[in-house]
Write a protein that binds this DNA or RNA. Structure first.
Lengths: 216, 216
DNA sequence: ACCTGAACACCGTTCAAGT
DNA sequence: ACCTGAACACCGTTCAAGT
């Protein structure tokens, strides 16, 4: 084992960045399944084996993709405005990230992020929650709750979990006896959904929660 | 194309169930990556090609795994007690499902579920939200918000997103100048987290939201 | 330090054939 | 209807070798 050497999974360098950008581009164009050591290498004119010293292997390659995506969120942290505006700005940035990288975004919910960039983002979130008045001992938990919802919504949207393939047609033809609530909500369920509006309404609800939970 | 035939991806039968159970068992024992057409076939003494008439291919196999997991949630719907108790019971069942099938659970966030079982679960949820007093036009959105959080929390927990590999050691050694909020929360961040407690606290928050949002 | 080339043990899936 | 067997075009990774 290369004990004294540089960790092959995190070693910096331009080549590493070039590799990760190629992997992300392939994911965007052809899906995560097309992100292959061979395909990534070919896109930048290398042999598959050349990647190993830069990303360590397939798993390291996927970790690196998450790292690159998180870097995209940094600018939204410098947004000005009220605290709530900055939280909303970050939440919107997460959703925008999911729409830019719909296939790769799934990785965000499955891999812990411990890069310096993500920690800075986390720190800004902690500070915002403290300033809003969330009790110290609840701050990490509330951050996890908000990030879980934010990531989960974006992932659900881009993965199509919210849009069953035959939703509008079959949902209206459900048997009212076995699915009474569907029948009662039939007109609501047949409405076309604007996901921008839905997301903003969810953020309103969460802001309401933060505003009322520890004030009464 | 077999236009008049039975859809190969949804065709019932004991063999299909046997195949899906084998796939889920392999996912539980060796991870989702080990769920291979060849491995699943071998476990029940078949040739890989024999699976195609029952699940339609690799994608259909993964859809089937979701179908089998959702079936596990049904019993929790018959729970008695108050409406809030039944919602909490379902939320706990989702988390329990994730812990029984940590590897396969990731599929739940990426695939829309339109099987009859999942629709019945959805119907019960709609009814509960209506009874609680959520306005008709908000019910589908609130259901999506709650299910997104519930699935996202369970997925984050079992995937390790909440537990960065070197969390307790490195988090306490962060530079206070670049990570001021982490420094301010240092004692809180060093506490050991009980995920049962955290989940219940989150459910309390969401119940608070439902109780206050449309009453004032 | 960085990269290549050949080889190994795997994949999912098509196709023609059996009963 | 259900299953098999051989074949095809892929994978990630090891290893020995080059510069």
């Amino acid at each position: 084992m290369p004990r004294g050497g540089v960790d092959p999974r995190t070693g910096g360098g331009e080549r590493r960045r070039e590799i990760l950008d190629a992997a992300l581009a392939i994911a965007d164009e052809q899906g995560l399944g097309a992100v292959t050591m061979r395909a990534v290498a070919a896109r930048i004119g290398l042999t598959p084996m050349a990647l190993y010293s830069h990303v360590g292997g397939k798993e390291g390659l996927l970790d690196g993709i998450v790292e690159r995506m998180l870097a995209d969120l940094l600018p939204s942290l410098q947004a000005s405005g009220s605290l709530e505006d900055r939280l909303r700005s970050l939440a919107r940035a997460v959703r925008g990230l999911a729409r830019r990288h719909p296939s790769a975004f799934a990785l965000m919910l499955s891999r812990p992020s411990v890069t310096p960039e993500s920690l800075r983002e986390l720190d800004a979130l902690y500070q915002a929650l403290l300033d809003i008045g969330v009790p110290r001992e609840h701050v990490p938990r509330v951050e996890r709750m908000l990030s879980t919802f934010t990531l989960g919504f974006a992932a659900s949207e881009v993965n199509g979990r919210f849009q069953p393939r035959d939703a509008r047609t079959s949902r209206s033809r459900l048997d009212p006896d076995t699915y009474p609530a569907h029948a009662a909500l039939r007109d609501v369920l047949e409405q076309k959904i604007d996901w921008d509006d839905e997301y903003e309404a969810d953020l309103d609800d969460l802001a309401h929660l933060l505003a009322t939970r520890w004030s009464g």
